[in-house]
Nucleic acid binder design. Structure first.
Length: 559
RNA sequence: AGCGGGGUGGGGUAGCCAGGAUAUCCCGCGGGGCUCAUAACCCCGAGAUCGGUUGUUCAAAUCAAUCCCCCGCUACCA
């Protein structure tokens, strides 16, 4: 492993934006982030894990108004939602925080103050589009006008109805306010800029040694090569964290939300009597799990802020691929979305199977296409057929014939097989290859099925009970190892299997060493229950129909 | 348009950086076997011009050039 037992490892996931319900796109990073943390714990490493709600910014202010709520009420609603979704999916964070909490305000403002003190911030006047009727500054997407290239009506950020070109707001001909339609004017206003170019040399060196997925590194280096600009970290909004000593402005969300990684650690440390500085000031190994869409924030802005404010910089940035639904890019407005609560939870989809699918359908860095039919296939063949069936046939056979762990001891073959699997899983996790780690673990079940078949215990039990028991002992030991190694992917299933193989204690506190800890013969085994049930065709059809309707109704709304 | 990532049997992957003989593994498909098990499991088999073209080389999935396609980002969506 790249990490060692003396490392203080801190894992985070990108914060969900509290303006809508949890969907499949979120799970693309939260499940791997959680699985990674659990793997590290199984490897005996010292690791904590944080996430929380991102609650500020213009879209939330706007959405709250539309929902007839205050921004605070609005974000509290979704904060509670995300917190419960995390719990339901066993995404086991040490603290699920929120950027609306006082502890977060304090840390975010402190960081800015330190940056000011260290001379990394410049304050100056800039002219920005302003609507005199609405008495508000207009963000690019709230400007409309004529596209200078094709003449179509366009937004300030892109020509969304015409040539699709990316635009700068000042390129728009005849710019107007989206809300009231009146012409916008340019008004001078004071803003605070983070002097990012000062960090160019640091960021190049930093990214060259940054661990994580290659995507993050290469992408950031490309960006830096194009030249860094000063970055406006203040906004003319009411909703947000007040800019320190400048009450007219708030902090731009992207200048404060990832401070949550620190503030959540602080709050956790306060509750537990632990030391947050150990992670953020002294010797922490910080690992950020994010979607590929926010690499530049985490490989450029964030390390520069941390460096400029004298904190530790991230050890690794781990970027997942994006999510597609039935072949289309995830899009709520077009209906290509799977909602965690409405689709998975309300229809009682096995959430451990969802975790398994998200982790093992394709490589972590690739785009993942969610297809209900494929979900069913993986569920029924791999989880029910190979894994679940192996566990059940072994446990039921033993239970019927012996009722307790059979006599035997670990053979060199079994020992070697388990050892090899542990090693390959460790290597895979070290490289953030979760599909490979799971495939390797499942390989143990496939191996178990083969040996069970070859040993033919249903015959040997009549002819050679000693051999039969020894063979079954090996099979059971494999199951114990699987329970531990699959725990990061499917924690609930691991718990159930752990009890079924006659183990006491908590599988979530085991380490991979326990995989080879020999079973104690004579321990009574409970009557086994199947680990997974098959997903029937009717459910697949039902879910596919729900999705089809969602897409259709989104299409008719758009027209 | 620029930058980054990707394209390998029907789906998903390994191999690519350090070029080498029959291109790996899982699922699906076809055939056989077993009967402990959730019509599950085990074995065998078919199936790939490695996105296209050109080049370097004794030898290219792998290196170079060029083109096509998909995804992400481009600093005011988060």
């Amino acid at each position: 492993m790249n990490l060692s037992k003396s490392d203080k490892i801190l894992v985070t996931c990108g914060l969900p934006y509290a303006n809508g319900s949890a969907h499949l796109g979120h799970l693309r990073t939260y499940i791997p982030g959680d699985a990674y943390t659990r793997y590290l714990k199984r490897f005996g490493l010292d690791v904590i894990f944080f996430c929380g709600s991102d609650t500020h910014g213009a879209p939330i202010e706007l959405a709250a108004v539309q929902a007839g709520l205050s921004p605070k009420e609005f974000t509290e609603k979704y904060h509670t939602h995300y917190k419960s979704i995390f719990e339901r999916l066993n995404i086991n964070v040490d603290l699920y925080g929120t950027t609306e909490a006082p502890y977060h305000y304090r840390r975010a403002q402190t960081i800015i103050r330190i940056l000011e003190k260290n001379g990394h911030i410049e304050t100056r006047e800039v002219g920005l589009p302003y609507c005199e009727t609405c008495q508000t500054f207009l963000a690019d997407r709230f400007l409309t006008g004529t596209c200078p290239y094709c003449g179509a009506q366009a937004r300030g950020d892109e020509c969304d109805q015409g040539c699709q070109r990316y635009l700068d707001a000042d390129q728009l001909i005849d710019p107007r306010c989206v809300t009231c339609g009146n012409p916008s004017i340019i008004k001078k206003t004071r803003h605070h800029f983070f002097k990012l170019p000062d960090f160019t040399d640091f960021l190049i060196k930093y990214n060259e040694q940054l661990k994580g997925t290659p995507l993050a590194r290469n992408y950031a280096l490309g960006w830096i090569r194009q030249g860094l600009k000063e970055w406006n970290i203040s906004r003319n909004l009411k909703w947000g964290i007040p800019y320190p000593d400048d009450d007219e402005l708030v902090l731009y969300v992207w200048a404060e939300n990832y401070a949550g990684y620190i503030s959540f650690t602080e709050e956790w440390a306060r509750q537990k009597g632990a030391d947050w500085e150990k992670y953020w000031i002294r010797d922490g190994k910080l690992v950020h799990f994010i979607g590929a869409d926010i690499v530049y924030h985490h490989a450029i802005f964030w390390p520069a802020i941390l460096k400029g404010a004298n904190y530790n910089t991230p050890y690794a940035v781990v970027a997942s691929g994006m999510v597609k639904v039935e072949g289309h890019g995830l899009s709520k407005s077009r209906g290509f979305v799977i909602d965690i609560e409405d689709d998975f939870i309300k229809n009682q989809i096995d959430l451990d199977a969802v975790r398994y699918y998200m982790l093992s359908y394709t490589g972590f860095t690739k785009d993942l296409d969610f297809v209900w039919k494929d979900f069913q296939t993986k569920m029924n063949n791999e989880l029910v057929g190979i894994f679940g069936n192996y566990a059940y046939r072994v446990l039921l056979f033993i239970h019927k014939n012996y009722g307790k762990i059979p006599e035997g001891s670990l053979t060199p073959e079994t020992k070697q097989k388990i050892t090899q699997t542990i090693e390959s899983v460790q290597k895979s996790v070290d490289e953030f290859r979760f599909k490979e780690a799971i495939d390797n673990t499942m390989q143990l079940a496939a191996y178990g099925n083969t040996t069970f078949q070859q040993c033919e215990p249903w015959k040997s039990i009549k002819e050679d009970s000693t051999r039969c028991q020894s063979d079954l002992y090996q099979c059971l030991q494999l199951l114990k190892a699987i329970a531990i190694l699959i725990e990061p992917a499917m924690p609930t299933v691991a718990e159930r299997l752990w009890l079924q193989v006659g183990q006491t204690g908590n599988v979530h506190e085991t380490t991979v060493k326990d995989c080879l800890e020999p079973l104690t013969s004579e321990i009574k085994l409970p009557k086994p229950k199947v680990l997974f049930t098959k997903m029937p065709d009717e459910i697949v059809e039902k879910m596919s129909t729900i999705l089809t309707h969602r897409i259709k109704s989104a299409r008719s709304k758009a027209n």
